[in-house]
């Protein structure tokens, strides 16, 4: 079963053809990163404009690279939530028209669940597992019992982790995207140079798996003098290493707590921040956890993960109607 996946939720205009939810035949990603770099962040209106210009070419390239035509495609999957609504609408409108014109089944795909599916394109993972979805828009720790059955254990109460990376990188002029720039700089830095504060979040007397990045971001941008260790030179590399360690350790702490409390020892990570080398090394070297990461090419937004999850949904019989709409948010996740 060949599925065409279309993704336009943020600043990547992407399409892919995937066979049976596993075998990636093509994966075309047209990134807008260079165009948004001037603003050190995604400008929603510009992103939407570029998606509308690029989408036909991107989908055509995905079909050509998979050596197939629309006649060979068995179904179409498109990201319909969550994301920038103007950007999502381009993909959804295009996919609906394409599906109608070729009389192919269509299904809307939740972008967050698709990120969690990305590692499963590379190798099978048995449910349940603890899912970690980390990107510029999301910081979620969840229990996954099926490809579309997740229960949120923890999330950020303010900024997403990738957003914090971007804002710190923007402030210090490290480059864009901030996550990539900080990860690169951190490799030559010493994280001991700065001991950032770590928030401890509780709901009444109950511990939570939630995280918070606004305090860390403020400390890194406005209170550096207070937390810097004078024994270390104040270099970009040292700052990047210290910030990265604080941000990722906070996430890993909550993740390990969730694994311990649920007794689930399998971790599956997805999203752009899953490409972070420090996060990967911490989790991969943990002695009692089995961690699965997507290949680097599938960490960011891509059409393959949409096609992969779309295959499961279509196989189950899910179908979107002509009234399929885009939604900037996701409703309906269970929260434990």
């Amino acid at each position: 079963m060949l599925i065409l996946g279309i993704e336009s939720s943020c600043d990547e205009c992407a399409a892919a053809v995937v066979r049976d939810g596993r075998q990636i035949l093509s994966n075309i990603i047209a990134s807008q990163v260079e165009l948004h770099a001037r603003w050190s962040g995604v400008v929603p209106e510009l992103a939407s404009r570029l998606h509308a210009e690029w989408i036909q070419d991107v989908v055509s390239q995905a079909l050509a690279a998979a050596n197939c035509t629309m006649a060979d495609i068995d179904g179409i999957a498109v990201t319909d939530r969550p994301g920038l609504v103007g950007a999502l609408l381009v993909g959804v409108s295009f996919a609906k028209a394409l599906a109608w014109s070729c009389a192919k089944p269509l299904v809307g795909v939740n972008h967050i669940l698709a990120h969690l599916y990305a590692p499963l394109l590379a190798e099978p993972v048995e449910y349940p597992f603890i899912g970690l979805i980390v990107s510029g828009g999301h910081s979620l720790i969840c229990r996954a019992d099926g490809f579309d059955d997740i229960a949120i254990l923890g999330t950020t109460i303010d900024d997403a982790v990738g957003e914090a990376f971007d804002k710190v990188a923007k402030h210090y002029g490290f480059g864009y995207p901030g996550g990539v720039a900080i990860d690169r700089l951190a490799r030559s830095g010493d994280a001991r140079a700065c001991r950032f504060p770590v928030p401890f979040l509780y709901k009444g007397k109950h511990k939570t798996y939630d995280v918070s990045y606004s305090g860390l971001k403020t400390a890194a941008i406005r209170q550096l003098d207070q937390f810097w260790n004078p024994a270390y030179p104040r270099t970009d590399a040292n700052l990047a290493a210290a910030f990265e360690k604080a941000a990722i350790d906070m996430l890993c702490g909550k993740l390990l707590l969730a694994a311990e409390d649920t007794g689930i020892k399998t971790i599956v990570a997805g999203g752009g921040v899953a490409a972070n080398s420090y996060l990967r090394s911490v989790l991969a070297n943990h002695p009692s956890l089995r961690c699965f990461f997507p290949p680097l090419a599938l960490c960011g937004d891509n059409g393959a993960m949409i096609a992969g999850l779309g295959f499961r949904l279509l196989q189950r019989g899910d179908r979107a109607g002509l009234d399929l709409n885009a939604s900037p948010r996701v409703a309906g996740f269970r929260r434990t």
Partner: peptide, 19 residues
């Protein structure tokens, strides 16, 4: 309308590719 124009164009492009 920016969004309206893009909905129409994206739809037309989807039809153009499919047909």
């Amino acid at each position: 309308s920016f969004t309206g124009l893009r909905i129409a164009l994206s739809t037309i492009k989807g039809l153009a590719l499919g047909l």
